[in-house]
């Protein structure tokens, strides 16, 4: 079966209200949003966000995420150190959760999106179906990386300001939050329609 695409029919889909229309208009006739057949400069913008996200992930994993006083001494932990701490305390549930959110998801997203950019850029259409599945996974799991950032913000907010204990957010929290926001922006700017050829059989 041969599929007809919007490009074959010289039509444009509005991504804001999902109305299909003829491409001579520059704005959607229903919602007045700017319309393009494909997101403009999708691959370039997505690639820039991806590289920046990767650069921020390096300090995020080396620097201190949170410092706190435990048994009278000040201890500082990196993201990975915090995860190890949970496993040592036999708190496997929280340890696994933070490991998934802070380590697995960000790196999985960066590797997957690099693969998607490769498939779209070099028109490797035999990977279209795998690509679209990966795209949906990384689009869905992206925001869960914010878990540890939220936890740090809540803990520091509650604990520090009621003088319960000393707890300070470290510079890694800023680097990590920036990296997560950048990966979400990279996925948002990627146009999944570029994974497919326009005249696939």
């Amino acid at each position: 079966m041969k599929y007809r695409s919007d490009i074959d029919e010289k039509m444009t889909l509005c991504l804001s209200c999902h109305t299909l229309q003829f491409e001579q208009n520059s704005n959607c006739y229903v919602c007045d949003n700017e319309i393009h057949q494909r997101k403009p400069n999708s691959l370039k913008i997505s690639f820039i966000f991806l590289i920046s996200a990767f650069l921020f992930l390096i300090p995020a994993n080396i620097l201190i995420m949170m410092s706190s006083v435990e048994a009278g001494t000040l201890t500082s932990k990196t993201i990975f150190g915090g995860i190890l701490f949970f496993f040592k305390a036999e708190d496997y549930f929280v340890g696994t959760l933070i490991f998934l959110a802070s380590i697995v998801i960000p790196f999985f997203k960066i590797i997957s999106l690099s693969f998607l950019l490769y498939v779209a850029k070099y028109k490797k259409q035999r990977y279209s179906h795998v690509g679209i599945k990966l795209y949906r996974i990384i689009d869905f799991i992206g925001k869960w990386s914010m878990l540890d950032i939220f936890v740090v913000a809540i803990m520091v907010g509650i604990v520090q300001f009621n003088n319960l204990a000393l707890m300070i957010a470290g510079p890694a929290s800023f680097a990590f939050a920036t990296a997560v926001v950048l990966t979400i922006l990279a996925v948002e700017h990627f146009d999944p329609r570029l994974l497919w050829s326009n005249d696939e059989q």
Binding site: Y3, D6, D8, L15, L20, I132, P192, L195
Partner: peptide, 12 residues
């Protein structure tokens, strides 16, 4: 009704 897929561009 003509619709297009937002993730692969196919017209339905």
């Amino acid at each position: 009704l003509n619709k297009a897929c937002a993730e692969c561009g196919v017209i339905v």
